[in-house]
Design a protein around this nucleic acid. Structure first.
Length: 508
RNA sequence: GCUCCCGUCGUCUAGCGGUCUAGGACGCUGCCCUUUCAAGGCAGAGAUCAGGGGUUCAAAUCCCCUCGGGAGCACCA
């Protein structure tokens, strides 16, 4: 049994979206589970839609998710792009370079097999213009027939060929699809799949520019890179017979028969249609910006179309790798549920150690101007820790800890109205402050005892003391555990805040 | 239009002929804990297994049909 080799082969025509990330993840999990090789290949043969920016976004997205590849372009983290430089200039890593298809094209990698098919009469030049093809298609549609190419250039005479050439027409290379027979292949998630060849038309292998089409490049590269399993979205299911046919025509029947496919179900938006921009965030980078943890995203994505027998929900990454299998991938499409992702993110945030959590929050704190020093101080770490169980998104943090860091926090009018602007509130606060001043140890335990004793002494409910203290020191009725944040704030600040509140209130 | 794929609680799913009066998770409801908000604990509502025919002593599980959803049919990938 040869070693597993899988690839994730995105086309750089946009950012890394949720569906692509899921495909990449399943490839990666399978490779890691099997002790195989995970390859990243950039399919940039679309001259007009491919972009430098997209390559960067894909590399960045994969890195963020922790999906490292064994062969492919140099990782984003190892190679920051200098201005003006191109990702494709990167030599990458691995023994089957290049991993950018346009680089392979420049090296003439696709020309040889195309010539072979041409010479053996398994492919031919087609001189039809886009206009001719278009009218062919509309006529077929009107006649209620499948919009297929009719094969008119299959047996072009030399004279006709010369005539086209004389007019300056550049040919494409078309594959001579067998008109009869059935093409079979094995799919790990779908089982045995077969298609009638008669349904397929003579599709294009090489464009007029000489650049290969997806169908052709994929076959050449999968063979070249000795891929053993093709794991991709099931939107490619009906492309598969074409690819198998090409392999057989090239004499790679053994390779074709050994190749295993796994067509993963699609991910849909909440309304059951294909996930798109109008469903909100669809790129993994947007989720990063919104404060999701990559490990939560990975865990959530793994559960979209894959499950264990006991429906386990939370997985440490090593656990996931160990339990993952293609056989347990489902066939039906799954709807992406942002609510469950959010829950899972909270789970992962709660599982983080305090220093780690603070570190993850740093970019968001900086952005909000709450990390003056630019790094995590012990004080900042304590502030974040106070809110840990409440955090669903890292972007929640600045809002949550703001009052602990800035002394000019704003008071919530409703809270002030309800809790402080009541008879006796100022007196109570001043007395509490007076007692606090005498405290030698200013801890959660000591301040709590102080407040409880005071309440008992005055015959008040504990809440009647706690709430004014909370609003006086934080500006609102909602927040972390009162005495714990008082301890973090420290005696001096607490007293200053209570005094200031009393002074302000007394004026009105 | 043609071809292919899919169809279990609102959602992700377990189930691979009897152990299913269909299990788990998110969400939802209630209760408990509690200084607030969360978190946590407990309980509950929620699926005649898309519908209809078969096969079988026995079907969510096997077969057929219908319906519904999705995908593909480019010199895009």
């Amino acid at each position: 049994m040869s070693k597993v080799r899988v690839r994730f082969a995105p086309s750089p025509t946009g950012f890394l979206h949720i569906g692509g990330a899921r495909t990449a993840l399943f490839n990666w999990l399978f490779a890691r589970n099997q002790g195989g090789t995970f390859i990243l290949r950039i399919e940039d043969t679309d001259e007009v839609r491919s972009s430098e920016e997209s390559v960067g976004a894909i590399l960045r997205g994969l890195s963020w998710l922790g999906l490292d590849w064994d062969e492919g372009p140099t990782a984003y983290t190892e190679r920051q792009l200098e201005p003006g430089a191109k990702w494709q200039e990167d030599s990458g890593k691995g023994i089957y370079m290049p991993y950018y298809q346009m680089n392979a094209f420049r090296e003439g990698i696709y020309k040889k097999p195309a010539d072979q098919l041409l010479n053996e009469g398994k492919a031919y030049h087609c001189y039809c213009t886009p206009e001719e093809l278009e009218s062919m298609r509309t006529r077929a549609m009107l006649a209620k027939r499948p919009p297929k190419y009719d094969g008119r250039c299959r047996d072009l005479t030399d004279a006709l060929r010369k005539e086209h050439e004389a007019k300056g027409r550049k040919p494409v290379v078309r594959f001579k699809t067998p008109v009869e027979g059935t093409t079979h292949f094995e799919d790990i998630v779908r089982g045995h799949v077969s298609f009638e060849n008669s349904l397929l038309d003579d599709f294009v292998l090489l464009k007029t520019s000489g650049i290969p089409t997806y169908q052709f490049a994929v076959v050449i590269d999968d063979h070249r890179m000795k891929i053993t399993h093709v794991i991709r979205g099931d939107d490619h299911l009906s492309n598969t017979p074409r690819q198998v046919l090409i392999m057989e025509a090239l004499g790679w029947g053994d390779f074709a028969r050994g190749l295993k496919f796994a067509h993963l179900s699609m991910i849909l938006g909440p309304d059951g249609t294909r996930l798109s921009k109008r469903h909100g965030a669809t790129s993994v980078e947007e989720y990063q910006k919104q404060g999701y943890l990559p490990e939560a995203m990975v865990n959530y994505l793994a559960l979209l179309g894959w499950s264990t027998e006991d429906s386990q929900q939370l997985f440490k990454i090593d656990d996931l790798i160990q339990k993952f299998s293609l056989e347990r991938c489902g066939k039906s499409a799954a709807i992406f549920d942002p609510v469950k992702l959010l829950w899972m993110n909270g789970e992962y945030i709660r599982a983080l150690s305090k220093p780690e959590l603070a570190q993850r929050c740093l970019p968001f704190l900086k952005e909000a101007g709450l990390a003056a020093s630019g790094e995590i101080t012990p004080y900042l770490e304590s502030c974040v820790a106070l809110e840990q169980e409440k955090i669903k998104l890292l972007t929640d943090v600045p809002r949550l800890v703001d009052f602990l860091i800035r002394d000019d926090f704003v008071f919530d009018e409703k809270s002030v109205e309800k809790v402080l602007k009541v008879p006796g509130a100022i007196g109570l606060l001043m007395e509490i402050a007076g007692k606090m001043r005498t405290l030698s140890e200013f801890t959660a335990a000591s301040t709590e005892k102080l407040c409880r004793d005071y309440a008992a002494e005055k015959g008040l409910k504990a809440g009647a003391v706690f709430h004014p203290v909370r609003v006086a020191t934080s500006g609102r009725t909602q927040g972390p555990s009162l005495f714990h944040y008082l301890e973090v704030l420290g005696k001096e600040k607490c007293l200053a805040r209570i005094d200031k509140t009393c002074a302000t209130l007394a004026v009105h």
